[in-house]
């Protein structure tokens, strides 16, 4: 999967939740990605260059990482 495209998508998601406040935005962005991204998309993002992520998206990815680690089926 193209990391630039996934980075763009993650940042879009994070930006949409931004008005909810920082903590809530991080939680909701992570939940959204867990709910709607398939395992290979998450893996590409988690193993790829995260430097292009916005602060909220980057923090959300940390939570996504924990979610994936706890669910073997999420592995790609």
């Amino acid at each position: 999967m193209n990391i630039d495209r996934l980075t763009y998508m993650a940042n879009q998601i994070a930006r949409a939740f931004e008005p909810q406040g920082h903590d809530s935005a991080v939680d909701q962005a992570a939940t959204h990605i867990n709910k709607f991204w398939d395992p290979r998309m998450k893996k590409t993002m988690l193993e790829g260059d995260r430097s292009g992520l916005s602060p909220i998206a980057a923090e959300a990815m940390v939570k996504v990482e924990a979610y994936v680690a706890a669910r073997p089926a999420s592995a790609w």
Binding site: M1, N2, D38, A73
Partner: peptide
């Protein structure tokens, strides 16, 4: 059943270009 969400149409096309 696979317990994880699958790909949406645009993601399928991206994944195809990617080879997966």
């Amino acid at each position: 059943l696979d317990p994880e969400p699958g790909l949406r149409i645009p993601n399928m096309l991206d994944a195809a270009v990617d080879g997966s």
